[in-house]
Write a protein that binds this DNA or RNA. Structure first.
Ligand code: SF4
Ligand code: SF4
Lengths: 133, 133
DNA sequence: GTATTAGGGATATTAGGAGTCTCTAATATC
DNA sequence: GATATTAGAGACTCCTAATATCCCTAATAC
């Protein structure tokens, strides 16, 4: 069990967009080069991010992507849910009444997700930026 | 990203073995029937549990499996690690010095695993047993 | 109109999970 | 010792999801 590569790419893309000057549009071309990916592949991921409302896209010449207006509220969990979906890690599909196994597994997953929810991308982006200077 | 079915089967198998009378051996046949699985398939999973030291196997006629002597220390995490391996959920394979993304992801995963480590199978088994009576 | 860009859909390709089959090794029982 | 029973190893098939490419369409700037 592992997070998909797409999640990794999505996180890097989001951080990059976070650090753009106000309203600046970045094309998938540039975002793909930055991560050594094919533009068409990254495009699929960006579409997911767009549908999740994390980025906003502008088609046409001089178009591209910019971070959503909710910039300061976007958490790691938001990005992960956009790429991985938000299904449960453990799902036995039977769901016996009051199952204790599910209870433990779900609580554990909840602990992970609450941590991912509490970490905002903007903070990591700012911190990474200040480190480089 | 989802836990494999094997993990589910492993957990149920472990709980079942936990509730056996002292030193009682249970064959893969019975364990498989209980979960409506093919014995050969479950056998693979049991071998993993054996190698992880969670159960002890006895070959030959009247052989089978019993829970390990460490019965009262076995956590959910032990079982999951036996079936899923203990790799990190997030691994970008580059590992930049002081990477902040990894730091967040690893901390979140740690939160999940520490919960899974704190939950002992024996407690869930006992509780489930008492519920049925 | 033309160049540029996002987005959708179809289609490979690959990797791993899920599951079966067969053979071997160990042990109890007779 | 012969036989039945059981764990365990290995090769194999099957299926699904992730990864990735290609091509076409729609929107926009110029
Ligand atoms: S006991 Fe829980 S985990 Fe097991 S089959 Fe029932 S619902 Fe699923
Ligand atoms: S910044 Fe972190 S997550 Fe990104 S490539 Fe470097 S080590 Fe990996």
């Amino acid at each position: 069990m592992r997070y998909s590569n797409a999640t990794n790419y999505a996180l890097h893309t989001m951080v990059h967009l976070m650090l753009q000057p106000r309203e600046n549009l970045v094309g998938v071309q540039e975002l793909a080069e930055m991560q050594h990916l094919s533009p068409t592949y990254l495009s699929k991921i960006l579409t997911k991010l767009t549908k999740a409302g994390l980025v906003e896209s502008t088609p046409g010449a001089k178009g591209g992507y910019k971070i959503s207006r909710t910039k300061h509220e976007i958490s790691f969990l938001d990005v992960i849910n956009a790429t991985e979906g938000d299904n449960s890690l453990f799902d036995c599909s039977i769901h016996h009444e009051g199952c204790l196994i599910e209870k433990v597994m779900w609580q554990a997953e909840e602990n992970m997700k609450s941590e991912l929810k509490s970490k905002l991308l903007i903070d990591i982006a700012k911190e990474a930026e200040s480190k480089q200077e």
